[in-house]
């Protein structure tokens, strides 16, 4: 499998304080890869580094063979990386439809394409069609997550990065979201999933990396990680 995303020894810092050190991992084309770990382990920071919301002070990030280490976020979107940020971050005063349009910003000169993509998103999540004219801030948490996910897909990414998609959602809604993630992946989009709910994450992804206090401490096939005693104890809440 060709590597779609290659992260080589990046260090990410807030001000002077390094939040992640020597992070190295890869996502192959068509793969779902997960980063799991406790709160504060640096998962979100790593994901922000991939999406360009933070620039690393060391290391290298390559996407489809191109060095994207210094690219600002909007150019990474053009390159094919999309992020569903933690806490969803929909634009609260834009309508559902307008939020989706913003996700398709890179196709703004092709109105027909944007309309077509919006139709596809609304086919995937009919709730969004029902609420297309409503301000995103008035949606429920689950609906906002559907919107954030669809909004990211509007740029037709090759790599979809998801930051805690299950956060604060009811179990039924979480199941629906994860079903969509698998469907999106089956349709050819690679997924990089950051999740505190390790059980869901390891069941969804093919490979996983375990993060602890800003570093990757274990990695492997999810089937193996699920059997690893230390991981069971630390993240799956069972012995």
């Amino acid at each position: 499998m060709a590597a779609l995303l290659e992260v080589e020894g990046i260090e990410l810092a807030y001000g002077e304080v390094a939040a992640c050190r020597e992070i190295a991992f890869a996502v192959a084309e068509g793969e779902i890869v997960t980063l799991i770990g406790a709160n504060g382990a640096g998962k979100t920071t790593t994901l922000r580094g991939v999406a360009g919301a933070m620039l690393p002070r060391k290391g290298r990030i390559a996407f489809m063979g191109q060095d994207i280490t210094r690219l600002p976020p909007h150019e990474r979107t053009l390159a094919g990386i999309a992020l569903v940020p933690e806490g969803r971050r929909v634009f609260p005063f834009l309508t559902v439809r307008e939020n989706l349009e913003m996700g398709g910003y890179k196709f703004r000169r092709d109105a027909a394409k944007v309309r077509g993509l919006i139709e596809r998103m609304m086919d995937m999540f009919p709730r969004l069609r029902e609420r297309h004219d409503q301000r995103a801030g008035t949606l429920s948490g689950g609906e906002q997550q559907m919107l954030a996910l669809s909004r990211a897909l509007m740029s037709e990414p090759k790599l979809l990065c998801l930051d805690e998609p299950s956060l604060g959602l009811a179990p039924l809604v979480v199941q629906e979201i994860f079903k969509s993630i698998r469907a999106i992946n089956a349709a050819g989009t690679s997924v990089l999933l950051v999740e505190q709910n390790a059980q869901y994450a390891l069941a969804t992804a093919a490979r996983g990396y375990v993060m602890q206090t800003g570093a990757i401490v274990a990695s492997g096939a999810c089937a193996d990680l699920r059997l690893d005693e230390r991981i069971k104890e630390a993240y799956l809440g069972r012995k």
């Binding site: 976020p73 971050r89 634009f91 005063f93 909004r151």
Partner: peptide, 21 residues
């Protein structure tokens, strides 16, 4: 489209960047 993007920037600058704006 540009006007809506302007509103998006004013509501959440970081996220608007992630949208490719």
């Amino acid at each position: 489209f540009l006007g809506k993007a302007l509103r998006a920037v004013s509501q959440d600058r970081e996220t608007s960047g992630l949208m490719g704006i």
